[in-house]
């Protein structure tokens, strides 16, 4: 049987970060005049990349 891939659980974070708009559909705090709602989602794109690269690295290290 394949070994358990616990690192994959980290991939839940991107879902949690954007699938509940009640959290982030706000104007404040603005970033250089850009509403929180907008810049937060751009930040989550970056976070998603970091997490996926992290998971890839963790999995590669175990092999």
């Amino acid at each position: 049987m394949p070994k358990r891939r616990w690192a994959l659980l980290l991939l839940i974070i991107p879902f949690v970060s954007v699938l509940y708009p009640d959290w982030y559909s706000r104007l404040q705090p603005e970033l250089a005049g850009i509403p929180f709602f907008v810049w937060y989602q751009f930040a989550m794109v970056v976070l998603g990349v970091i997490i996926t690269i992290g998971v890839y690295a963790l999995e590669a290290a175990r092999q």
Binding site: P14, V18, Q41, F42, V45, I51
Partner: peptide, 20 residues
């Protein structure tokens, strides 16, 4: 307006699915 931005979360969460 803002509803059109759903394309951002959409294309964020598609990739964890792709990865798995």
């Amino acid at each position: 307006g803002a509803i059109g931005l759903f394309a951002i979360p959409y294309t964020i969460i598609v990739y964890p699915l792709v990865y798995v």
